[in-house]
Design a protein around this nucleic acid. Structure first.
Lengths: 356, 356
DNA sequence: ATATGTCGTGAGACCGGTCTCTTTATATCG
DNA sequence: CGATATAAAGAGACCGGTCTCACGACATAT
């Protein structure tokens, strides 16, 4: 066994060239698949390469060509089904175009996001897809553009940044869900999100630093206002970041003198937590409380009752973002756009019809 | 706006050096954080770097140091909660040690796995964690070792390959689950997996090309045999790769003259499919059929009844694999081992007690 | 037969870092 | 005060590819 002893310097084009008794340039032409080489020499080089088990050093290749063939993706949390589905969409689009994907987690934290972006730029990715943790802090993204690296935002838009964004149609989705609830006779509706409630509570919708959440809340509030329901902001609750927090959010909400009869969950993780909260409070869905969750997650259709959801078509979103980025990388002339993927309300059994 | 017009050649150490009026070597020392440089010059270089917005080219750095700071991970399917949890474990271990992770999907297909491995080797990853799609075909993995790249297998072991593997304690897990079912009075038990049933059916347990599944089946069969139950192999069914296939597997199983009273699902995806199959057949769990699933997936504890599961502690598995790989990369002297992460049977409500 | 063109090959610069080796400047010592 | 040690800075090779350019051989044109 002569393995770890000899770290065995990797086989290079020069080695192959020597073995095939040709110049380095010629061997490189054959192995790199460019330029013109005679059939005879091609065979000889290929044979030598096979014998030596040559594997090209993509690093070196990237350095001279300036292209890495990698696209970088910065997501909030891969463990979240929303992102893992999106990543699959992105990966599929990437693979189709011959690109590979490198994924970094930001944990929805700005600092982690910044260093992830820096790192990926350092690795000379050909393009970047970022889910910005906050839409009000984007110096680092500005820098990406100045560095000449194509960028596509995912799930959240930053209008101040002159760059493509692929998002869901969050406002419309919230409007549709809220209208549906009102149509079923609900009059007191709450929106629950996992966003950090910085500065305690919700003074100003415009302040919400995540555009997806902001737009959903705007849609939600606009429908309530339009329907003449009082004090819609009162029913928007942030901070459902974990089970315990969610339990307390829900408990507080439901012990209100005018407790909501229906809850709208901002994402499937919050939805699951709400479901568990209600379960542990011994409340039945939809008899005691109705709910709608965003994202068609696994768990939502094996519960009793199955959960009515807003299908965000995340795979398509991811795929679209990937395709858009690749078009940018390949310098396809396109106007900067915000691409909205429309959503679908999937009615299942978690909303009761009340009143008459 | 002068962006895409001037692709703006990236700022290099040479540029910074010129701006700071020092040699390239000195600038590199400051920027690379090695060697000795006086405080005065350090400041000057840093100032120049900041002014020019210098960002190191990690590619070039990797090329000269020979280290990329990246570990490659080849998984079966990121969308599967099993793998996304594992990836988080791996990422956490990697980040702690200053490594980054690049993920590739094999879709559980050998060819895709081979090309993913080749690609990652080409990118000069410092190490590789692979979930081998098949344990009986490993030339490409042998090549990884010959290339001197540290390798750790994940979830499945290949004894013929002299390399570390981190797996669950699959045999024991299956034994525990099966014993539990027998203890609850079940006498006819079935094991259902999503493995492709090549060659139709299950002639020979040893033939199962996925060691995790094989060991579980072995554990399952051994308990049944030990308990003197007849024809255990009859109840091992493969091919539950999607909902439709699963429906037909379950239907066939339950229409048997000696239909099983309990089902063991090989992973949480199969478990979910089985749950839906039973639901659509109008069968109630656990009254009509009992079931146990592997993996503590989200959905398993919001169903009615909640599903009894085998907790595989996947995050720990991932973390362990990451740590092991990093130890290898850092040349820590260690014997080649198979690390087994023990599992836990979590009893919830999906298994009925029968008989008296 | 000489000029022109094309094709295949070789030589060597280049990408942007790291790192070794050499040179220069300053400090320490007898 | 000169000799030697030591710290700091510079020069340039190197990593493994790509790619431009130069060159020789042969084919075609004149």
């Amino acid at each position: 066994m002569e393995d770890s002893a000899h770290p065995k310097r990797a086989v290079t084009v020069a080695d192959v060239a020597k073995a095939a008794k040709v110049s380095k340039a010629t061997a490189a032409r054959v192995l790199g698949g460019y330029g013109v080489v005679s059939a005879k020499i091609t065979d000889r080089v290929m044979a030598a390469a096979a014998a030596l088990e040559y594997r090209p050093n993509e690093l070196a290749r990237s350095m001279s060509t300036g292209r890495s063939g990698i696209i970088g993706v910065v997501v909030g949390d891969i463990e979240n089904a929303f992102f893992s589905l999106a990543v699959r969409g992105i990966s599929d689009a990437a693979r189709l175009a011959g690109f590979n994907v490198i994924i970094a987690n930001s944990g929805e934290e700005l600092d982690a996001e910044k260093s992830a972006v820096d790192l990926l730029i350092g690795k000379r990715v050909d393009g970047l897809i970022v889910t910005p943790a906050r839409c009000d802090s984007f110096d680092h993204l500005q820098h990406v553009r100045r560095a000449g690296v194509p960028l596509v935002l995912f799930d959240r838009a930053i209008p101040e940044l002159d760059v493509d964004a692929v998002t869901g149609d969050d406002r419309d989705a919230a409007i549709a869900a809220t209208r549906y609830l009102i149509g079923q006779g609900h009059r007191r509706l709450a929106y629950v999100s996992a966003m950090d409630a910085e500065g305690g509570g919700l003074a100003n919708i415009g302040r919400i630093s995540n555009s997806a959440v902001r737009e959903r809340v705007e849609g939600f509030v606009s429908v309530l206002t339009e329907a003449g329901l009082p004090n819609p902001l009162h029913y928007v609750r942030l901070g459902a970041t974990n089970q315990q927090q969610t339990d307390s959010v829900i408990k507080r909400l439901l012990s209100d003198s005018a407790a909501p009869t229906a809850l709208l969950a901002s994402d499937s993780l919050v939805g699951l937590r709400i479901f568990k909260s209600l379960q542990s409070l011994g409340l039945s869905i939809p008899k005691d409380v109705s709910m709608i969750s965003f994202l068609d997650a696994d768990w939502t259709n094996v519960t009793v009752p199955p959960i009515t959801i807003v299908d965000q078509r995340v795979y398509e979103m991811g795929k679209l973002a990937g395709e858009r980025l690749i078009a940018r990388i390949e310098r396809t002339p396109l106007a900067v756009e915000r691409l909205r993927v429309s959503t679908n309300l999937v009615v299942r059994g978690s909303v009761a019809t009340i009143g008459r």
